[in-house]
Amino acid sequence: MKLPEIRTYLFQDDGTIPNNRVLPVVLYPGALKDQAAQTENLFNRHHWLNSWTNGVFPYHHYHSNAHEVLGVIRGSITLQLGGGQGEHVELNAGDVVVLPAGTGHKRLSASADFQVVGAYPDGMDYNLRTGKEGERPQVLQEIEQVPLPDCDPVFGESGPLLRLWKGLF
């Protein structure tokens, strides 16, 4: 599989959504364009498990105890990444985005046929946090304790995610 264009985004803590102070969001535009229907199987083969197919919540949320991969299998979506002051990112069928633990995300709009597959390294259970008062300092500790994945969800053991994330330590 040919390596796609890669975009990265690093978001700072905005006081409500912690984001991840070290690991960037990694976006693979069009990485699975010709095989969007195989997205879940591909993630699972690369040990990103506990997968689901659905949509994205229309409110800011994050997972403090797990990294998450989202692969668009149908339609399109505009996400806001990084909290209320974050980036608006348009994703289409075949696009994949990897969200490090703590990264805020919210659906701003989506096409009527939109569907996404989500999964987590080694099938980690994930929580749902929204930036409510009282979530800190526990979530900050949880984010720092999430281990790095062993495989890139799209490209496996030799994927760019591992080089990007492991190179930061």
Rank of each mutant, 00 (worst) to 15 (best):
S111E: 12
S111V: 09
S111T: 14
A112T: 13
A112C: 09
A112M: 10
A112Y: 10
D113E: 13
D113W: 12
D113Q: 10
F114D: 00
F114N: 03
F114P: 01
F114S: 03
Q115I: 06
Q115P: 05
Q115A: 06
Q115D: 05
V116G: 06
V116N: 08
V116H: 07
V116C: 11
V116I: 13
V117D: 09
V117A: 13
V117N: 11
V117F: 11
V117W: 09
G118K: 07
G118E: 07
G118M: 09
A119D: 04
A119Q: 02
A119S: 08
A119W: 01
A119M: 04
Y120T: 14
Y120C: 10
Y120I: 12
Y120M: 13
Y120S: 11
Y120L: 11
Y120K: 12
Y120N: 11
P121W: 13
P121F: 15
P121S: 14
P121A: 15
D122V: 11
D122N: 13
D122K: 09
M124Y: 03
M124I: 03
D125Q: 10
D125M: 12
D125S: 10
D125R: 09
Y126D: 14
Y126R: 14
N127C: 14
N127Q: 12
N127T: 14
L128I: 15
L128D: 14
L128C: 13
L128P: 09
L128R: 14
R129C: 10
R129I: 05
T130H: 02
T130A: 02
T130G: 03
T130P: 00
T130M: 01
G131A: 07
G131C: 08
G131L: 08
G131T: 05
G131R: 02
K132N: 06
K132D: 07
K132P: 01
K132G: 04
E133W: 00
E133R: 00
E133L: 01
G134W: 08
G134V: 07
G134R: 06
G134N: 07
G134T: 06
G134E: 06
E135T: 04
E135I: 06
E135C: 06
R136E: 01
R136A: 05
P137C: 03
P137M: 03
P137N: 05
Q138C: 03
Q138F: 09
Q138K: 02
V139N: 01
V139T: 15
V139G: 01
V139C: 10
V139I: 15
L140C: 10
L140W: 09
L140F: 11
L140T: 12
L140K: 07
Q141S: 15
Q141A: 15
Q141H: 15
I143C: 00
I143V: 04
E144L: 15
E144T: 12
E144H: 12
Q145E: 12
Q145V: 05
V146F: 03
V146C: 02
V146M: 03
V146W: 00
P147C: 09
P147W: 09
P147V: 10
P147N: 09
P147T: 11
P147G: 10
P147D: 08
L148A: 08
L148H: 08
L148M: 11
L148N: 07
L148T: 10
P149H: 04
P149I: 03
P149A: 03
P149K: 02
P149W: 04
